[in-house]
């Protein structure tokens, strides 16, 4: 009975995190983006600096009619948002935020593989949406999504493999247990590549060609309305949370910090993830969108070689330090 309670509690916590953190990131994006552009952003909803803007948005989305285009493939069209969103919930389950058993939803032996595999599944949602909408722009968006995933999955995997090599384990908790501070400079190239590839996989600017509004309206999500559209948006922000959490865990040492006892490890994790989320927003505000071919070229001619070089470096250092 105690086990059941424990599992239920963990699931509940992860679910609450899943529902709140993306909103926090979204609200931060509203505000940070506004101030970076010399604006104030939302100021009314909720009273204090528009803190409830996204709640209001959610209410608005829930009120809207759920339209399915006449020519669409009805069932797949309706299923797609769930396929896009659920994987991130699953991934969140495996990200440890503090030391010990208590600070992770579920310890998974092959954690790195689990998170990367399940994150890749989320893209299927965009593909299904793009195809099932019976809309040319949606189809183009789906195509771009697929092309982007194929290009960026590889560097992401390779850099994650580099960390796994360094730690000698593919378990996320194991990687953090083995972490030393000098891993950060050692794996910095890998960290950058992982982060950039993750951005591309989430279709965040400057890699948002699949939803490029000035070219293809809103890509795969063009035909969506109401709650299903909101689910896609939630998936994007949940993706940011997951990506920042993963980068923190894999490359920045998660709960390790210059000071802070065991009890405060989770603060470090959240702090690092928050800084990364800020960087995600910062990049969005600063850079214009790449072109589709530039994106592919960027991945295949820069990120993949860089990640291979990182793996080579990791291997060399690993052999050298394990010599004596």
């Amino acid at each position: 009975m105690n086990d059941v309670l424990d599992v239920a509690l963990r699931l509940l916590v992860v679910f609450v995190v899943f529902l709140t953190f993306p909103l926090i990131v979204g609200q931060t994006e509203h505000k940070v983006m506004a101030h970076m552009q010399g604006r104030l952003g939302p100021m009314y909803a909720g009273g204090f600096h528009g803190w409830a803007q996204l709640v209001a948005d959610g209410v608005k989305f829930a009120q809207k009619e759920d339209v399915v285009p006449a020519g669409a493939d009805r069932r797949i069209f309706q299923l797609a948002p769930a396929v896009a969103l659920l994987p991130y919930l699953l991934v969140l389950l495996a990200i440890p935020i503090g030391p010990g058993e208590g600070a992770v939803g579920q310890v998974i032996d092959a954690g790195v593989f689990f998170v990367l595999a399940v994150m890749g599944v989320g893209v299927l949602g965009s593909l299904m949406a793009g195809w099932a909408s019976a809309n040319k722009f949606s189809l183009l968006g789906g195509l771009r999504t697929a092309a982007q995933l194929l290009a960026y999955e590889l560097p992401m995997l390779l850099t994650a493999a580099s960390v796994a090599m360094a730690a000698g384990t593919v378990s996320l908790v194991g990687i953090l247990d083995a972490f030393e501070w000098w891993w950060v400079p050692w794996q910095i190239t890998g960290a950058l590549v992982f982060f950039i590839a993750g951005l591309a996989e989430l279709q965040r600017p400057p890699f948002d060609m699949p939803v490029a509004d000035s070219e293809i309206i809103f890509g795969a999500y063009t035909e969506y309305t109401g709650l299903r559209f909101a689910l896609f948006l939630l998936a994007e922000y949940a993706g940011i949370v997951v990506l920042c959490g993963l980068t923190t865990v894999l490359f920045l040492g998660g709960w390790h910090g210059p000071w802070g006892a065991d009890g405060l490890g989770w603060v470090w994790t959240l702090l690092k993830a928050a800084v990364l989320a800020f960087v995600v927003i910062w990049l969005r505000v600063t850079y214009p969108r790449l072109r589709e071919d530039q994106l592919q070229k960027f991945s295949w001619t820069l990120l993949v070689p860089l990640s291979l070089a990182q793996i080579a470096l990791t291997g060399i250092v690993k052999v050298v330090i394990s010599q004596p």
Binding site: V32, A34, H35, M36, Q37, G38, R39, L40
Partner: peptide, 8 residues
């Protein structure tokens, strides 16, 4: 720009 006062 973020650290400056916004013009709104």
């Amino acid at each position: 720009t973020m650290t400056k006062k916004s013009v709104t």
